[in-house]
Design a protein around this nucleic acid. Structure first.
Length: 171
DNA sequence: AAGAAGATTCGCT
DNA sequence: GCGAATCTTCTTA
């Protein structure tokens, strides 16, 4: 959930990737730096990083204070505040509004300003429990990752059209 | 001090 | 399919 001057925007997270302790692909692998310090906060805090000089990506920290682990939000199904998302993502179809980590952050206007926020507390960026029937969940290797490339740490809703990635890995 | 690679996306071929 | 855009961090000299 995103609450700011544009009103409320909501997406259902339909695709995630885990970056776990001891994982060479994780930003936290080589210890704490100014960029990744939010990964070392207790579970539930936002970690926002800037990539390829162009995009932000949103994660949530996933372990106890000082451990260093997180879950990347890779795609979302737009639920509310869709006009505000369309203004941020000019020219994108509904399906592509938040389909991909960079697009998701752009649709929700998430930048470094949100880095470190507690997403389990009331505020401009927070997590709500999903509702409705439990979806079928698929798992696969992570996208764009070269280290520890065999690990099945990507999770997605198997029946959602809002999931990113090549079709062949979305079994 | 300089260079390469990276949890990406878009536009053009 | 390939290259550009272009920031941060890590590696190597």
């Amino acid at each position: 959930m995103r609450d700011d001057a544009a009103g409320r925007r909501a997406v259902r997270i339909v695709e995630t990737e885990a970056y776990v302790p001891g994982d060479a692909a994780a930003h936290s692998y080589r210890g704490e730096t100014p960029r990744n310090r939010s990964l070392f906060l207790s579970r539930g805090h936002a970690y926002v990083y800037f990539i390829y000089g162009t995009w932000f990506c949103l994660n949530v920290s996933a372990e106890a204070t000082g451990v260093g682990a997180g879950v990347l939000f890779r795609a979302g199904e737009p639920l509310a505040g869709i006009p505000a998302m369309e203004r941020r993502r000019r020219g994108a179809t509904l399906r592509d509004l938040a389909r991909g980590p960079g697009r998701l952050a752009e649709a929700l206007d998430v930048t470094r300003a949100e880095d470190g926020l507690d997403m389990c507390a009331a505020g401009p960026l927070w997590l709500a429990a999903p509702h409705g029937a439990a979806p079928r969940i698929g798992k696969s290797v992570r996208i764009g990752v070269t280290q520890e490339a065999h690990r099945l740490l990507r999770f997605y809703e198997r029946d959602s059209p809002f999931v990113s990635g090549p079709r062949r890995i979305n079994l």
